[in-house]
Amino acid sequence: MLDPATRRFRVGPGATWGHVAEKLGARGWAMTSGNYGDVGVGGLATAGGIGYLARAHGVTVDHVVAAELVLADGSKVRTDAATEPDLFWAVRGAGSSIGVATALELEALEVGNVVVGTFTYDATDAAGFLLRWSRYLAAAPRRLTSFPFVGAARRGQGPVAQAINVWADDDVDAAVAALEPMLGLAPVVDQRAQLVPYGALVPPGDSRHVGQQTTRIRSGFVPHTTEEDAAALARLLADPAVQVLEVRSMGGAVADVDPAATAFAHRRQEVFVSAWGTPGAAERFDAAWSAFAPHTSGLYAVYTSDLRPERVHDAYPGATYDRLAEIKRRVDPGNLFARGLIVAPAGSEAGRG
């Protein structure tokens, strides 16, 4: 803890969100974070962070106030809004292209308990459910954030959606008023709601990581869900190559920030969608996503296994890419940091694709 008065805290290498949530929760604070407790703080807080508090408090990078980096030449630099502002802009959304973050400082939120409603739906009419859900969330109070996970039909059972809905404070009456209409989005199989500390959503997970994720994932942002978008999502879900659709509501505080303010530029879209592929069906999965992709605008750089170099322009569109490429030319002209969807230095061969 650096400054209790401003709720500023410091996180070092190897920290995971579950442990951070525990520490912050002891003070009645929280930070919008990854979905699971074993998600690393550094990777998410330098990439975006579309968490359970996103519509109320924005993405995680919006709360980063300083970073300490090791650059490609081995030099160490501290960056914030006043010191190396270009690096501060870049590290909030494209950190992996710029350097190694050895410490991050963030300002915590005054969030203690939250209301969590977990609703399970019969999603046989997947298109109808997703359209009704997206329209409701687009107009819902910003204290409400919702993440439906829609499982494909298997072994004679139709599609099922489980929505994790988080009201970002302890006002139970307001939460109930916002959650009750969601019970009419599709036939409800199960429902439960409780008032819990934010940390209960992301308990620490200390299981050993033994390798890279092998499931193929694709992601994209949907600007405003139309009937055509919802129908395309339902077709995607119905393809045997797709196991699960994960859908996240955006808008609210995410959209309050100018897309040019950070390297995470996807601010105006209402929905984030990711698809998880069936093992052994890679080509078909790629084809299924390609059919849906025209309904999206951009992708989340750290939430995809499509690492073709041309995809980096979808992750960092237009002027965001150009600014990142110039910063990269200055701090990593040899493109040392080149793993994943990485912006190449301006003027380099890698940057001319």
Rank of each mutant, 00 (worst) to 15 (best):
D38Q: 12
D38W: 06
V41E: 02
L44W: 03
L44R: 06
A45S: 14
T46F: 05
T46G: 04
G48I: 02
G49A: 05
G49Y: 05
G49S: 09
Y52R: 10
L53V: 02
L53I: 03
A54S: 14
A54E: 01
H57W: 07
G58D: 00
G58P: 01
G58T: 06
V59A: 15
V59R: 15
T60I: 12
T60Y: 13
D62K: 15
V64D: 01
V64F: 04
A67L: 00
A67E: 00
L69I: 10
L69W: 03
V70M: 12
L71F: 10
A72L: 10
D73A: 09
D73E: 13
D73L: 11
G74W: 04
S75E: 08
K76M: 09
K76N: 07
V77M: 07
T79M: 03
D80C: 13
A81D: 14
A82I: 08
E84F: 10
D86R: 15
F88E: 00
A90N: 05
R92K: 14
G93E: 02
G93P: 06
G93W: 08
S96I: 07
S97D: 01
I98E: 00
I98M: 09
V100K: 04
A101E: 06
T102C: 15
T102M: 14
T102N: 13
A103L: 11
L104A: 12
E105Y: 12
L106F: 15
A108P: 09
A108G: 11
L109G: 02
L109H: 13
N113W: 01
V116Y: 02
V116N: 02
G117P: 00
T118A: 14
F119S: 03
A123V: 13
T124S: 08
T124L: 05
D125H: 14
A126H: 09
A126P: 11
A127M: 03
A127I: 02
A127C: 02
F129I: 06
F129C: 03
L130Y: 12
L131F: 14
R132L: 10
W133I: 03
R135E: 10
Y136W: 10
L137H: 09
A138R: 15
A140Q: 03
A140R: 10
A140S: 15
P141E: 07
R142V: 08
R142T: 15
T145V: 03
S146I: 00
S146M: 11
F147T: 00
P148D: 01
P148T: 01
V150N: 13
G151K: 07
G151N: 08
A153T: 10
A153V: 09
R155N: 12
G158R: 08
G158D: 13
P159C: 07
P159W: 04
P159F: 04
P159A: 09
V160I: 12
A161V: 11
A161P: 05
I164S: 05
I164F: 10
N165W: 04
N165H: 11
V166Q: 02
W167H: 05
D169W: 03
D169C: 08
D169Q: 06
D169A: 08
D170W: 05
D171H: 14
D171K: 15
V172Y: 01
D173N: 12
A174N: 02
A174Q: 05
A174C: 04
A174V: 00
A175K: 05
V176A: 12
A177R: 14
